[in-house]
């Protein structure tokens, strides 16, 4: 049964427990960083950071509003990265859970091709193995009937995991409740993705790639990726 993660950013306190828990479960090392005047650290997703709590500040009248956005792969129902893939079996979608997985064959993929196809700017590359990497929905844990690590670690109830239909129902209920206080609240691309965000304000205030360019249809990048996929595939075969 397809699964989904519902991220209620209105409950997120940016403790970054999910970010740390993800790294710990994957046994990733620390990455060199420095103080940049923000709690967002590291500044972007890396091959050792599949989950990143993004911080952004906006001046609303005389008040500074702080927005938190636990960014990660959305596990699209029809993944554009998979469409853009030129290597068979490099990017797969697990039917049982809906998780989009980059396999070891992804080391033969072109990062920019796959990354430009992603409307959420998620894929990264391991500089050593050249493998493309991102969140895999903790597929090892989910197959063992355990919650993804980020969900398990969330102390505020912002992260939720379950059957897609249940998560959509929960998301709808929360949206209704949140809208009473925040009329601009919305769910982001809930019909297209397995990681559904609830935001209280305009998505662009949270993150440049919080929401896909054109909701419910392909972005320009996706469309181009699909158009050129056969050409790239031929090129890949020619190059061997």
């Amino acid at each position: 049964m397809p699964k989904a993660i519902f991220i209620d950013t209105t409950r997120c306190t940016a403790c970054r427990g999910c970010q740390v828990a993800c790294k710990e479960w994957k046994n990733f090392p620390a990455v060199p960083t420095k103080q940049r005047g923000t709690h967002q650290n590291p500044p972007d997703l890396t091959h050792y950071n599949f989950k990143l709590v993004r911080f952004s500040e906006h001046l609303e009248g005389d008040v500074v509003q702080w927005y938190f956005f636990p960014d990660q792969c959305r596990h699209c129902l029809e993944p554009p990265c998979k469409e853009a893939s030129t290597v068979d079996g490099a990017i797969i979608r697990d039917d049982a859970t809906g998780a989009v997985i980059y396999t070891e064959k992804s080391s033969k993929e072109d990062l920019e091709t796959v990354r430009s196809a992603c409307p959420y700017n998620i894929p990264r590359q391991d500089p050593v193995t050249k493998r493309l990497v991102k969140c895999d929905m903790c597929i090892d844990r989910v197959r063992a009937n355990l919650l993804p690590m980020c969900v398990k670690s969330c102390a505020m109830g912002a992260m939720n995991f379950g059957n897609r239909e249940d998560m959509l129902k929960l998301a709808g209920e929360r949206l209704e409740a949140v809208k009473k206080e925040f009329p601009k609240a919305s769910l982001l691309n809930q019909d297209d993705v397995s990681v559904i965000y609830l935001v209280a304000d305009l998505p662009a205030k949270y993150h440049e790639f919080a929401v896909a360019g054109v909701s419910g249809s392909m972005t320009r990048k996706q469309m181009l990726a699909r158009i050129f996929a056969p050409v790239r595939k031929i090129g890949q075969q020619v190059r061997g």
Binding site: K3, V142, L146
Partner: peptide, 12 residues
């Protein structure tokens, strides 16, 4: 003894 199921970490 009493069997105990800890559901806190379970997906289903």
């Amino acid at each position: 003894f009493l069997l105990c199921l800890d559901t806190g970490e379970l997906a289903d």
